[in-house]
Amino acid sequence: MELLRDWDAWQRRIGAVPRATATYTTNLYALRDQIEDWCAAGRLHTLSTERAVLLLRADRGFHRIHHVARDLPALADALGALPAGTYTSDLVGQGGQLEDVCAAYSANGFAVHTVLQRMTRVGGLGADHDGEATVAAPGEAAEVVVLLERLLDRFAEPVPEVAALQREAHDGRLLIVRRDGVIAGMLLYEIKGRMAHLRLWHVDDNARGLGVGRRLMRSFLARCAQVQVQRLVLWVIGDNARSVAIYRHYGFVPDGLLDRIMIRHEGAHR
Protein backbone atom coordinates (compact mmCIF):
# COMPACT_ATOMS: atom_id res chain seq x y z
CA MET A 1 0.00 0.00 0.00
CA GLU A 2 1.15 3.54 -0.73
CA LEU A 3 0.31 6.76 1.11
CA LEU A 4 -1.80 9.07 -1.06
CA ARG A 5 -0.55 12.64 -0.73
CA ASP A 6 -2.78 14.73 -2.98
CA TRP A 7 -5.61 14.87 -5.51
CA ASP A 8 -3.30 14.86 -8.53
CA ALA A 9 -1.71 11.60 -7.39
CA TRP A 10 -5.16 10.06 -7.10
CA GLN A 11 -6.09 11.23 -10.61
CA ARG A 12 -2.97 9.61 -12.02
CA ARG A 13 -3.86 6.29 -10.41
CA ILE A 14 -7.46 6.12 -11.56
CA GLY A 15 -6.45 7.47 -14.96
CA ALA A 16 -4.66 4.18 -15.55
CA VAL A 17 -7.89 2.19 -15.07
CA PRO A 18 -9.95 1.76 -18.27
CA ARG A 19 -13.36 3.27 -17.59
CA ALA A 20 -15.01 3.37 -21.02
CA THR A 21 -16.36 -0.15 -20.58
CA ALA A 22 -19.75 -1.60 -19.67
CA THR A 23 -18.04 -3.68 -16.97
CA TYR A 24 -16.49 -0.73 -15.07
CA THR A 25 -17.34 -0.72 -11.37
CA THR A 26 -16.80 1.76 -8.53
CA ASN A 27 -18.18 2.62 -5.10
CA LEU A 28 -16.26 5.90 -4.77
CA TYR A 29 -18.59 8.90 -4.69
CA ALA A 30 -16.54 11.26 -2.51
CA LEU A 31 -16.02 14.77 -3.85
CA ARG A 32 -12.62 16.32 -4.48
CA ASP A 33 -12.80 18.41 -1.27
CA GLN A 34 -13.41 15.28 0.81
CA ILE A 35 -10.52 13.40 -0.76
CA GLU A 36 -8.19 16.38 -0.29
CA ASP A 37 -9.20 16.62 3.39
CA TRP A 38 -8.45 12.91 3.88
CA CYS A 39 -5.09 13.31 2.14
CA ALA A 40 -4.18 16.30 4.32
CA ALA A 41 -4.94 14.23 7.42
CA GLY A 42 -2.68 11.40 6.19
CA ARG A 43 -5.58 8.93 6.24
CA LEU A 44 -5.50 7.63 2.64
CA HIS A 45 -3.51 4.81 1.08
CA THR A 46 -3.85 3.20 -2.31
CA LEU A 47 -3.35 -0.32 -3.58
CA SER A 48 -3.00 -0.50 -7.37
CA THR A 49 -3.09 -3.41 -9.78
CA GLU A 50 -3.03 -3.33 -13.57
CA ARG A 51 -6.78 -2.78 -13.94
CA ALA A 52 -7.97 -1.59 -10.53
CA VAL A 53 -7.22 0.81 -7.69
CA LEU A 54 -8.36 0.51 -4.07
CA LEU A 55 -8.57 3.67 -1.97
CA LEU A 56 -8.10 2.76 1.71
CA ARG A 57 -9.34 5.29 4.27
CA ALA A 58 -8.18 4.85 7.86
CA ASP A 59 -11.00 5.08 10.40
CA ARG A 60 -10.56 4.16 14.10
CA GLY A 61 -8.54 0.97 13.81
CA PHE A 62 -9.71 -0.30 10.41
CA HIS A 63 -9.88 0.85 6.77
CA ARG A 64 -12.85 1.71 4.58
CA ILE A 65 -12.38 0.55 0.99
CA HIS A 66 -13.43 2.48 -2.10
CA HIS A 67 -12.75 0.67 -5.36
CA VAL A 68 -12.28 1.69 -8.98
CA ALA A 69 -11.97 -1.31 -11.32
CA ARG A 70 -12.26 -2.11 -15.00
CA ASP A 71 -14.41 -5.15 -14.24
CA LEU A 72 -15.30 -7.59 -11.50
CA PRO A 73 -12.33 -9.96 -12.08
CA ALA A 74 -10.00 -6.95 -11.74
CA LEU A 75 -11.76 -5.95 -8.52
CA ALA A 76 -11.40 -9.48 -7.15
CA ASP A 77 -7.68 -9.50 -7.97
CA ALA A 78 -7.16 -6.18 -6.16
CA LEU A 79 -9.09 -7.34 -3.09
CA GLY A 80 -7.00 -10.51 -3.06
CA ALA A 81 -3.85 -8.37 -2.79
CA LEU A 82 -4.97 -6.72 0.47
CA PRO A 83 -2.66 -7.34 3.44
CA ALA A 84 -4.06 -8.72 6.69
CA GLY A 85 -6.30 -6.24 8.45
CA THR A 86 -9.89 -5.21 9.11
CA TYR A 87 -11.69 -3.61 6.16
CA THR A 88 -15.21 -2.49 5.33
CA SER A 89 -16.83 -1.42 2.09
CA ASP A 90 -20.18 0.22 1.29
CA LEU A 91 -21.83 -1.28 -1.80
CA VAL A 92 -24.81 0.82 -2.88
CA GLY A 93 -27.50 -0.06 -5.42
CA GLN A 94 -30.92 -1.53 -6.01
CA GLY A 95 -31.19 -5.04 -4.52
CA GLY A 96 -30.21 -7.30 -7.43
CA GLN A 97 -27.59 -4.89 -8.73
CA LEU A 98 -25.36 -5.65 -5.74
CA GLU A 99 -25.07 -9.41 -6.07
CA ASP A 100 -22.11 -9.67 -8.45
CA VAL A 101 -20.05 -6.98 -6.70
CA CYS A 102 -20.79 -8.54 -3.29
CA ALA A 103 -19.67 -11.90 -4.68
CA ALA A 104 -16.28 -10.41 -5.61
CA TYR A 105 -15.86 -9.20 -2.04
CA SER A 106 -17.15 -12.48 -0.54
CA ALA A 107 -14.60 -14.46 -2.55
CA ASN A 108 -11.89 -12.51 -0.72
CA GLY A 109 -12.98 -13.04 2.87
CA PHE A 110 -15.68 -10.36 3.21
CA ALA A 111 -19.11 -11.00 4.71
CA VAL A 112 -22.24 -8.87 5.02
CA HIS A 113 -22.10 -6.89 8.27
CA THR A 114 -25.42 -5.10 7.89
CA VAL A 115 -27.66 -3.57 5.24
CA LEU A 116 -28.86 0.02 5.25
CA GLN A 117 -31.94 1.14 3.37
CA ARG A 118 -32.62 4.62 2.10
CA MET A 119 -35.88 6.30 3.04
CA THR A 120 -37.34 9.35 1.33
CA ARG A 121 -39.99 11.94 2.04
CA VAL A 122 -41.28 13.92 -0.93
CA GLY A 123 -43.51 16.99 -1.06
CA GLY A 124 -43.97 20.27 0.73
CA LEU A 125 -43.49 20.28 4.47
CA GLY A 126 -45.91 23.03 5.35
CA ALA A 127 -45.46 25.25 8.40
CA ASP A 128 -43.87 23.09 11.08
CA HIS A 129 -43.27 24.47 14.56
CA ASP A 130 -39.67 24.60 15.73
CA GLY A 131 -39.00 21.89 18.30
CA GLU A 132 -36.65 24.16 20.28
CA ALA A 133 -33.47 22.23 19.61
CA THR A 134 -30.30 24.31 19.80
CA VAL A 135 -27.75 24.89 17.07
CA ALA A 136 -24.52 23.51 18.52
CA ALA A 137 -21.47 25.71 18.96
CA PRO A 138 -18.16 24.46 17.50
CA GLY A 139 -16.89 24.01 21.05
CA GLU A 140 -19.60 21.39 21.69
CA ALA A 141 -18.51 19.12 18.82
CA ALA A 142 -16.18 16.99 20.95
CA GLU A 143 -19.01 16.18 23.37
CA VAL A 144 -21.21 15.13 20.45
CA VAL A 145 -18.46 12.81 19.18
CA VAL A 146 -18.23 11.15 22.62
CA LEU A 147 -22.01 10.55 22.52
CA LEU A 148 -21.85 9.06 19.02
CA GLU A 149 -18.91 6.82 19.84
CA ARG A 150 -20.99 5.35 22.63
CA LEU A 151 -24.13 4.85 20.54
CA LEU A 152 -23.03 3.89 17.03
CA ASP A 153 -21.82 0.74 15.33
CA ARG A 154 -18.60 2.23 13.94
CA PHE A 155 -18.59 -0.13 10.96
CA ALA A 156 -22.14 0.77 9.87
CA GLU A 157 -22.31 4.48 10.76
CA PRO A 158 -19.04 6.42 10.58
CA VAL A 159 -18.47 8.73 13.54
CA PRO A 160 -17.43 12.17 12.25
CA GLU A 161 -14.10 13.61 13.32
CA VAL A 162 -14.25 16.47 15.84
CA ALA A 163 -12.85 18.96 13.31
CA ALA A 164 -15.51 18.00 10.76
CA LEU A 165 -18.31 18.42 13.32
CA GLN A 166 -16.87 21.77 14.34
CA ARG A 167 -17.29 22.94 10.75
CA GLU A 168 -20.85 21.60 10.65
CA ALA A 169 -21.66 23.42 13.88
CA HIS A 170 -20.13 26.63 12.56
CA ASP A 171 -22.40 26.36 9.50
CA GLY A 172 -25.49 25.73 11.65
CA ARG A 173 -26.12 22.13 10.56
CA LEU A 174 -25.63 20.43 13.93
CA LEU A 175 -28.59 20.47 16.34
CA ILE A 176 -28.49 19.34 19.97
CA VAL A 177 -30.77 19.03 22.99
CA ARG A 178 -29.37 19.12 26.52
CA ARG A 179 -30.87 17.68 29.68
CA ASP A 180 -29.37 18.55 33.05
CA GLY A 181 -26.45 20.17 31.26
CA VAL A 182 -25.55 17.07 29.24
CA ILE A 183 -26.13 16.54 25.51
CA ALA A 184 -29.00 14.05 25.34
CA GLY A 185 -29.49 14.02 21.58
CA MET A 186 -28.11 15.32 18.30
CA LEU A 187 -29.15 15.72 14.67
CA LEU A 188 -26.83 16.46 11.75
CA TYR A 189 -28.24 17.50 8.39
CA GLU A 190 -27.39 19.08 5.07
CA ILE A 191 -29.56 21.08 2.67
CA LYS A 192 -28.69 21.53 -0.99
CA GLY A 193 -31.26 23.38 -3.03
CA ARG A 194 -34.63 21.72 -2.53
CA MET A 195 -33.18 18.49 -1.09
CA ALA A 196 -32.21 17.75 2.51
CA HIS A 197 -30.11 14.87 3.82
CA LEU A 198 -30.68 13.82 7.42
CA ARG A 199 -27.22 12.43 8.11
CA LEU A 200 -27.36 11.49 11.82
CA TRP A 201 -30.15 11.56 14.41
CA HIS A 202 -29.44 9.92 17.75
CA VAL A 203 -30.68 10.13 21.34
CA ASP A 204 -28.82 8.92 24.43
CA ASP A 205 -30.33 5.70 25.79
CA ASN A 206 -30.94 7.44 29.12
CA ALA A 207 -33.09 10.10 27.45
CA ARG A 208 -35.39 7.92 25.36
CA GLY A 209 -39.10 8.59 25.77
CA LEU A 210 -38.51 12.14 27.03
CA GLY A 211 -39.25 13.99 23.78
CA VAL A 212 -35.61 14.68 22.88
CA GLY A 213 -35.80 13.02 19.47
CA ARG A 214 -39.09 14.76 18.69
CA ARG A 215 -37.62 18.17 19.47
CA LEU A 216 -34.69 17.51 17.19
CA MET A 217 -36.81 16.24 14.31
CA ARG A 218 -39.31 19.09 14.53
CA SER A 219 -36.48 21.61 14.51
CA PHE A 220 -34.97 19.94 11.47
CA LEU A 221 -38.30 19.87 9.60
CA ALA A 222 -38.91 23.51 10.48
CA ARG A 223 -35.58 24.50 8.96
CA CYS A 224 -36.39 22.51 5.84
CA ALA A 225 -39.78 24.20 5.55
CA GLN A 226 -38.19 27.64 5.82
CA VAL A 227 -36.21 27.08 2.62
CA GLN A 228 -38.98 25.11 0.87
CA VAL A 229 -37.24 21.74 0.76
CA GLN A 230 -39.18 19.30 -1.41
CA ARG A 231 -37.28 16.04 -0.87
CA LEU A 232 -35.69 14.59 2.27
CA VAL A 233 -33.49 11.47 2.37
CA LEU A 234 -31.84 9.40 5.08
CA TRP A 235 -30.24 6.00 5.63
CA VAL A 236 -31.38 3.59 8.34
CA ILE A 237 -30.25 0.10 9.37
CA GLY A 238 -32.68 -2.08 7.48
CA ASP A 239 -33.58 -4.54 10.24
CA ASN A 240 -34.04 -1.87 12.91
CA ALA A 241 -37.82 -2.07 12.97
CA ARG A 242 -38.17 0.57 15.68
CA SER A 243 -36.20 3.20 13.75
CA VAL A 244 -37.96 2.40 10.47
CA ALA A 245 -41.34 2.80 12.20
CA ILE A 246 -40.33 6.18 13.65
CA TYR A 247 -39.23 7.45 10.25
CA ARG A 248 -42.48 6.22 8.71
CA HIS A 249 -44.32 8.23 11.37
CA TYR A 250 -42.61 11.34 10.02
CA GLY A 251 -43.58 10.54 6.44
CA PHE A 252 -40.48 8.70 5.16
CA VAL A 253 -40.83 5.56 3.04
CA PRO A 254 -38.18 3.14 1.65
CA ASP A 255 -37.22 3.96 -1.95
CA GLY A 256 -35.49 0.67 -2.81
CA LEU A 257 -31.86 1.81 -2.62
CA LEU A 258 -29.68 -0.36 -0.37
CA ASP A 259 -26.21 -0.03 1.12
CA ARG A 260 -24.74 -3.46 1.82
CA ILE A 261 -21.84 -3.04 4.24
CA MET A 262 -19.23 -5.77 3.78
CA ILE A 263 -16.54 -6.47 6.35
CA ARG A 264 -13.35 -8.53 6.49
CA HIS A 265 -11.83 -8.96 9.91
CA GLU A 266 -8.16 -9.23 10.78
CA GLY A 267 -6.69 -12.46 9.50
CA ALA A 268 -9.55 -13.33 7.11
CA HIS A 269 -8.49 -14.51 3.65
CA ARG A 270 -9.72 -16.40 0.64
Rank of each mutant, 00 (worst) to 15 (best):
A268Y: 07
A245Y: 03
A16E: 11
A207I: 09
C224T: 07
R199Y: 12
P160G: 02
V227Y: 12
R242G: 02
A164Y: 10
R167D: 13
V203Y: 01
A20D: 12
N27G: 05
L188H: 04
D33K: 06
E266G: 04
R215G: 06
L55W: 01
R173G: 01
E190M: 04
R178S: 08
I176E: 10
E132Q: 13
A142E: 12
L198R: 00
G126E: 15
R60Y: 11
G126P: 03
Q94Y: 09
R167P: 00
N206E: 09
G42S: 07
D204N: 02
R32T: 07
V144D: 15
T120K: 00
Q11D: 12
A127Y: 13
W10N: 05
S48D: 12
L216D: 15
R167L: 14
P254E: 10
I261T: 05
S243E: 13
P158G: 02
A81K: 12
F220I: 07
G42V: 13
G126N: 11
G85Q: 03
R214M: 12
D37K: 08
V162L: 01
T26S: 11
I183R: 02
E143N: 06
P73T: 10
W7E: 15
G181W: 11
P138I: 04
D77C: 11
R13W: 11
S106Y: 09
W201A: 05
I191F: 04
R32E: 12
P138C: 09
F220S: 01
R51Y: 08
D255R: 00
H63M: 13
L47D: 08
L4S: 08
D259S: 04
E2S: 14
A142H: 08
P18Y: 11
